Structure formats: structure tokens, C-alpha cells
Amino acid sequence: MTLATDAAATTFADNLAHAVFRVDKFIVPSASLPAFFARMQEIQQAVRQMPGCRRDLLLQQSGGAGEFNVVRIIEWASTEAIEAALATMQRRFKEEGFDPTAFFVKQLGAKTDFGLYRVV
């Protein structure tokens, strides 16, 4: 390894040590997937612009026997960044009159599981 490679690896490891990952798992009925993805893309556009958002991935299961058919993984630079983003999105949803639980769970019939994770 070179010094540049060593420095890049150290910076990468340091960034991951402080990162917080929000992992949202969904069971979405097939008939609801188009509406689900349309709304999630709108949400992602807003979230990706927020300070501290490093990565926002929306993944659809393509194989295997897992229970969840859609997973969203958002990497945040810090706990403070995710807390600020959550507050911003809650305000935005309130201003828009959008209730995520009513839409995703009640209207689309999705089942959800959310959590925050760190690298071990």
C-alpha cells in the first residue's frame, strides 16, 4: 500500500466509525409497489439533499426467501445529522398533510420495520 492508499483507508474507516445507518424494511404487496416506489422516490430526492446524508439506497428483493421485499438503507454522517433530517421530514410531511403511516401501512398495506445501526 502507498501512503495515499493508507490515508484513504484510514479516512474511510473513521467515516464509518461515526456513521449511522437507518435501515427501513418493508413487505409491500405487489399491486402497491408502483405507488410505493413513486412516493419513496419523492422522499429520497428530499433526503439526499440534507446535510450529512452520504448514501440513500432503495433496494427491491430479486431473489431468496427473505420476508421483506423492499429495503431502504440511508447512511448518515452522524447521529446529529439523522436527528436533524428526521425533524425536517416530519415538518415537511405535516406541511404537506402527508401521514406516512396512513399511506404506507393503511392505504398500501405495507408492513414495516425500522431501525438505526452502526458498523461493528
Score class of each variant (00 low, 15 high):
118 R>T: 06
90 Q>V: 15
14 D>C: 00
15 N>V: 05
23 V>T: 10
84 A>Q: 10
8 A>I: 12
38 A>E: 12
100 P>I: 07
120 V>R: 12
40 M>Q: 11
39 R>E: 11
69 N>V: 00
94 K>W: 05
90 Q>P: 00
120 V>P: 14
50 M>Q: 12
117 Y>L: 14
98 F>N: 04
101 T>G: 13
13 A>G: 03
111 K>N: 04
76 W>T: 03
74 I>H: 00
6 D>I: 14
66 G>V: 07
54 R>F: 06
84 A>S: 09
29 P>K: 05
15 N>W: 10
5 T>Q: 06
115 G>T: 00
99 D>N: 10
52 G>F: 09
63 G>K: 00
86 L>K: 15
79 T>I: 13
100 P>G: 08
71 V>M: 02
50 M>F: 10
24 D>K: 12
8 A>V: 09
11 T>R: 10
118 R>S: 12
3 L>G: 15
120 V>G: 08
35 A>I: 00
53 C>I: 07
1 M>L: 15
94 K>P: 05
25 K>W: 02
85 A>H: 06
102 A>Y: 08
79 T>Q: 14
78 S>T: 15
17 A>L: 06
21 F>Y: 14
75 E>Q: 09
84 A>N: 15
114 F>C: 01
11 T>Q: 11
112 T>G: 02
85 A>I: 04
30 S>Q: 14
30 S>G: 10
30 S>Y: 01
75 E>I: 04
81 A>L: 02
53 C>L: 00
93 F>H: 09
88 T>V: 08
23 V>M: 08
52 G>K: 05
91 R>A: 15
3 L>F: 11
7 A>M: 10
109 G>A: 05
59 L>G: 01
99 D>F: 01
98 F>M: 10
112 T>N: 04
115 G>E: 03
65 A>I: 02
80 E>I: 10
49 Q>N: 14
60 Q>P: 00
106 K>P: 01
64 G>F: 12
74 I>V: 11
89 M>Y: 13
70 V>F: 01
34 P>S: 04
66 G>S: 08
68 F>W: 14
116 L>S: 04
103 F>Y: 13
78 S>R: 03
3 L>P: 09
29 P>A: 12
42 E>M: 13
33 L>W: 03
78 S>G: 10
41 Q>P: 07
61 Q>S: 00
109 G>L: 04
1 M>T: 03
56 D>W: 05
26 F>D: 01
106 K>Y: 12
20 V>Q: 11
91 R>G: 11
66 G>Y: 08
27 I>T: 15
73 I>A: 06
108 L>Y: 00
89 M>P: 10
14 D>M: 09
2 T>R: 02
74 I>Q: 00
69 N>I: 01
45 Q>H: 14
76 W>L: 04
78 S>Q: 15
63 G>R: 07
83 E>Y: 02
48 R>L: 11
42 E>D: 06
101 T>W: 05
115 G>A: 03
87 A>T: 09
64 G>V: 14
29 P>V: 04
24 D>T: 06
58 L>T: 04
50 M>P: 10
36 F>H: 05
120 V>E: 14
24 D>M: 13
35 A>L: 10
117 Y>N: 01
31 A>T: 11
40 M>L: 08
73 I>G: 00
56 D>A: 10
